[in-house]
Each structure stands twice: as C-alpha cells, then as structure tokens.
C-alpha cells in the first residue's frame, strides 16, 4: 500500500494549506444547509401526534448529541495515533477537537433539559443516558484542564492522550445506555442500517441538519488545527512562506 499521500498530508505545511483551502468549502454549505433544515424543522414538518410542536427540539438536540460522541471518538483515535506513531499532527487534531466537542455536549444537555421539562416533567433526571452524557462533559473539561496544566507541549500531548483513551470507554456506554437499561430516555430515532422510527415526512430535515453539523465541525476543526500547527511549529522555516 502506498502511504506517500498520507505522509505528505501529515506534514504540517501541507496540512496547514489543506485546512485553509478546505474550510470555506465546509463552512458555507454547512450554514446554508442548517438554514434550510432549521426552516423546515420549525415551519414545514407536521407536528408529532403525541408531543405536538415540542418534538421540533429533536432537530437540534440529536445532531448536537451525535456530534458530542463523534468528536470525542475522533479526539481519542487521533490521540492514540499520536501516542503510537509519535505524530505531532495527530496530537494537534486531538487538541483542536476538545473545544467544539464540549460545546456540542453542553448544547445536547441544555436542549435535552429544555425538552425534558414540558414532556417528562423535569429538567433533569439521574437517568443512565443523561448521567453518562454529563460524564462526557467532565471528560472534555478534564482533558482541557490536564492540557493546561503542562508547560511542555509534548508532555501535555501524551498525558491528555492517555485521558482521552481512558474516556473512550464511555462512548459505547452512552450509545447503548437506552438499550441496556429500562430508562426514562427514549431509544434511538435514526438508524443507518435499519428503519428509522421517525416518520418519512419528518426525517429529511433531521438528516440534513446532522450532515450540516458534521461539516460545521469540519470547518471549526480546520481553524483549530491551523492555530495548533502555528503554535507547535513556531521555529519552522516553512512558516515564512505561509505567513506572508
């Protein structure tokens, strides 16, 4: 197998240039998709037979929650690659994941609470799904704090990577918590392989919003990665060309 393209992309100058080119191609389509999906979710799709208009929160809650899990998985895998292959760029990716990841987690928790109040009757319950998602937020915050407590960026990378890998075990627990325990939180709505439990007339805005969130995260990752590369490559020669 030919890994030349990978090594090329993994070199900081190429990655930097690639991220700068890629960012607008992710950000603007993502924002227009969000606009369309948000309009459709609020005004076009019919209300739910049980929850009436309150279910419209799902169109922001599910994408935020999915991304909180996805971003953590990317962060932990990047951290693992950085740890094994001593790849600086992988550590830079992991470091750029933590801020968007924690924002998505906060959004999932807050929109969930606002949805829970009128439907369940409580802002918060110590339900398995809710509790494990809260642990995910603490993992993100712990990762940030651990990183900030080291002056040496290499040591910060390695310590944070171990934490990210340890926390990875939480991800399948969050995902399957609604299957393993008979809890307050309902089961999954979207299914890639099977049939989704949301009516076809409502599913399109949800899928578009989910894709838009993924692309949005990509755009944010581009900027965050560039900031990380500049911080790590401060004495490199190639910077002169990129900066000017």
């Amino acid at each position: 197998m030919n890994w030349v393209w990978f090594h090329k992309l993994a070199s900081p100058p190429t990655a930097y240039a690639f991220a700068r080119t890629l960012r607008p191609w992710l950000l603007w389509p993502s924002l227009s998709m969000m606009l369309w999906a948000g309009y459709a979710a609020l005004f076009v799709v019919p209300p739910d037979y049980q929850q009436l208009d309150a279910y419209r929160i799902i169109f922001v809650h599910v994408p935020a929650a999915s991304l909180s899990l996805m971003v953590y998985s990317i962060m932990a895998i990047a951290a693992g690659i950085g740890l094994i292959w001593r790849m600086k760029l992988a550590h830079a990716v992991a470091a750029a994941c933590v801020l968007p990841g924690s924002v998505f987690t906060v959004l999932a928790l807050v929109t969930g609470a606002i949805w829970g109040k009128p439907m369940w009757g409580a802002w918060w319950a110590w339900d398995p799904r809710l509790t494990t998602e809260l642990i995910l937020l603490f993992l993100y915050l712990g990762y940030m704090a651990l990183r900030a407590s080291f002056d040496d960026i290499g040591r910060a990378d390695r310590a944070a990577a171990v934490l990210a890998l340890v926390g990875l075990v939480n991800i399948p627990i969050i995902k399957y918590s609604v299957v393993w325990w008979n809890s307050l939180h309902q089961g999954k709505t979207l299914s890639i392989w099977g049939k989704s439990s949301i009516d076809p007339s409502m599913v399109m805005p949800l899928l578009v919003m989910l894709l838009a969130f993924v692309m949005f995260f990509g755009a944010i990752l581009c900027d965050g990665l560039c900031a990380q590369i500049l911080r790590r490559e401060r004495h490199a020669q190639w910077l002169t060309k990129q900066v000017q």
Binding site: D48, Q50, M119, W120, A122, G187, S197, I198, S201, M202
Partner: peptide, 18 residues
Amino acid sequence: DEVLAKHDENYMPPNVAE
C-alpha cells in the same frame, strides 16, 4: 413526590398515527 412521563422514539404526524 415526582411523576415523570416517558415517551417512545416514534415520531409521526397525527394523521399517520390515526
């Protein structure tokens, strides 16, 4: 001292449910 309502993961318009 607390009553919470559960709902399932099925979302559909009223006429479909009907």
